[in-house]
Design a protein around this nucleic acid. Structure first.
Lengths: 378, 378
DNA sequence: ACTGGTTTCTATACCGGTACAGTAAGCCCC
DNA sequence: GGGGCTTACTGTACCGGTATAGAAACCAGT
């Protein structure tokens, strides 16, 4: 019963919860050690390495802890001492919101959560946007991070690099030395474009949502595209259409104004040289175009063929079903999580670059190009 | 240029990233201090309190840090020293997945994210499920947490309590001393039930999704209901129907099998004493019933009236629009985030209990009860 | 020259844990 | 009855920062 208190009793702190009166001393390992009459280390072992002490003593310690209202070793202190936090970050573009509203992103994140669940790792959501002097990518403790569809030159990504965290990049330009997961977007896009060509379409348009302008109905086929996946998709379309001499007009709206695609598409579809098919950057984009077609009384696919991208939930929810390029977001999530998990425990051995397939799924929204001159009433 | 190194040079650590060779010494404040020839404290100030040193020295320190590849003060160490982590937790039921797939939860979480964005706080998602010996609610560092629609007796919630973290409870039975945000679910449900009564309906059924069984098509009106919001909704319905002598049959499926509602509803709607109206626990549930009606060729609202709950996206996406009880999930998220934010910085002063309104929104899915004997073909 | 106020930097003591190398006691075995 | 193993616990030195109270230097005012 020596338990000589080597440290002075712990300091007083601001109350943290309603039950705490101001000035209630914090309960730490030392508090319990003093109470039971053992060393701080033994109390630590009681919680973290039960095999290091006798069951009876351990029970006495646990009882004392219970009695004193001790909630277990402080996570922060433990993280500092052990060098691991039990948390991984997911870096998303600007607004976290779309993580919760876009069901394609949702499927991906859900798969990550499921894959990570058995490991007990928690998920911290990080924004690229560094408003204020708190920059999550720099200031939040974590064991590693998943970078999902971010601008690789953004400050947030550089911070993660500098911190030398284990990283996995998803839907981004592959980075040497890091595990990466990508989808064969370009292949998929090519298949989509080829499908339309095979059906005899020549008057084809693009519909795009993206972060940067210009927005609206654009005639310039060379509209800049940002985002790795988006660029790849665009390249895939062009791979097929450019050699065929086709330079499509483009509809473009920012992510948060997807709804405006409908209006733009109405304009596009009202033109005398109305396209007979539209290649869309996502299923949601396709939905907007589809609604515009409905508005104008155009039939899909008789008057207008539509190809989406992702094969998300809406692809099958609408009638006729949407022809689209399927990517397996669940698999993408699982692989990404598994790779990060591996990077977390293994030494930095290999850094695989996965490319998941993207395959065309033909449903009812595409059909043969209408004969020249045969026009639905507008 | 004394800068006597009081601590030995920092230890060697396992490599954390691919650029790190094994055995690369970690760069800390001390490394930079030694390099520049100042004390560790001065380097710390260069990063955290710029006004405490001359601009020239600060610049020299920052340059040295840049050159040595220092990413800024270690978040974990800083958290331990300062007592704040820059992260808040959100505790969700069992699976995180539904945070990303349920658009009603998504709206709530998105609003939280938006509200929290300016503060720079990161969001950590926590599961109630404590698989393994890593229990997020106990072991993850955070400054406070939001408890969303959880079982108040679950171990995860008790851990948060024991840690004496600032907490805000949402869609849960209010807890004394803590800020709480709730929706007037019971009022809303009452309005929904009354609406059907007013339309002359007497043969009414309930459709429910919940975590626990029994599942399927149940005749027992006293099916147990769990989850605060769910209980409240059920109570609200019963408030109106029980006095009217109506004891509805119940359809019930677990959350992850919402799709089976359709099958159950088909069974329900095929019975000779087919209900003329169904009260549903959510819009998604209502969608399942609606599909069953479609399957059977029943017209909504002529043959069957449908009331949902939430007024989420699908309520307006289907034709006819769904009569439903509107709750403002955005506002719920904003309030919850704001309250937590307040609890984080203020002393535990007041702990408001907010109750947001729930109002009936009548759309096309409800109509007068069909005359007795008038039956649609089955 | 002495006092008092800044400014700028340093020394020390924490924050609340864990790793690791003891040490003392008990036990087995030849 | 002493060497070698375990078992059970302790002492010390960290982990990588920050708070706080000095100390040294400089400047102005009297």
């Amino acid at each position: 019963m020596t338990g000589a208190r080597l440290r002075p009793p712990s300091g007083w702190r601001r109350a943290a919860g309603p039950t705490y009166g101001v000035g209630v001393p914090r309960v730490t390992l030392q508090t319990i050690a003093d109470r039971v009459g053992v060393s701080r280390m033994t109390v630590s072992n009681a919680f973290s390495r039960p095999d290091q002490l006798s069951p009876e003593l351990r029970q006495r310690i646990l009882d004392a802890a219970q009695e004193l209202g001790y909630a277990g070793p402080d996570p922060t202190a433990r993280a500092l001492a052990k060098g691991t936090t039990g948390t991984i970050g997911i870096l998303l573009t600007d607004s976290l919101r779309y993580a919760f509203t876009d069901l394609v992103a949702g499927g991906f994140l859900g798969a990550i959560a499921d894959e990570l669940a058995p490991t007990g790792l928690a998920i911290t959501l990080l924004t690229s946007a560094g408003t204020g002097d708190l920059i999550p990518a720099r200031d939040v403790a974590m064991d590693g991070a998943l970078v999902y569809s971010c601008d690789p030159t953004s400050p947030a990504v550089s911070w993660l690099h500098r911190r030398r965290l284990p990283l996995v990049f998803v839907d981004q330009a592959p980075v040497d030395g890091y595990a990466c997961v990508n989808v064969a977007d370009r292949d998929g896009a090519r298949a989509a474009a080829q499908h339309l060509i095979d059906l005899g379409h020549r008057r084809i348009a693009y519909a795009v949502v993206g972060a940067h302008g210009p927005f609206g109905l654009l005639t310039d086929a060379a509209t800049p595209v940002e985002g790795y996946a988006s660029v790849q998709r665009r390249l895939g379309w062009d791979d097929v259409l450019t050699p065929a001499g086709i330079h499509p007009p483009v509809i473009r709206e920012p992510f948060e104004r997807v709804d405006d695609v409908r209006r733009d598409a109405r304009e596009l579809l009202s033109r005398p040289d109305r396209p007979t098919a539209v290649l869309c950057f996502s299923d949601v984009t396709a939905l907007g175009v589809r609604q515009a077609a409905d508005d104008l009384g155009l039939r899909v696919p008789e008057d207008l063929s539509l190809v989406g991208f992702d094969d998300g939930p809406i692809a099958t929810q609408i009638q006729p079903g949407l022809t689209t390029v399927r990517q397996d977001v669940e698999e993408k999530g699982r692989s990404a999580a598994a790779l990060l998990n591996a990077a977390l425990r293994l030494s930095p051995g290999e850094a695989p670059h996965l490319v998941l397939p993207a395959t065309l799924v033909v449903r009812g929204s595409t059909g043969p190009a209408p004969a020249e001159g045969a026009r639905a009433p507008v």
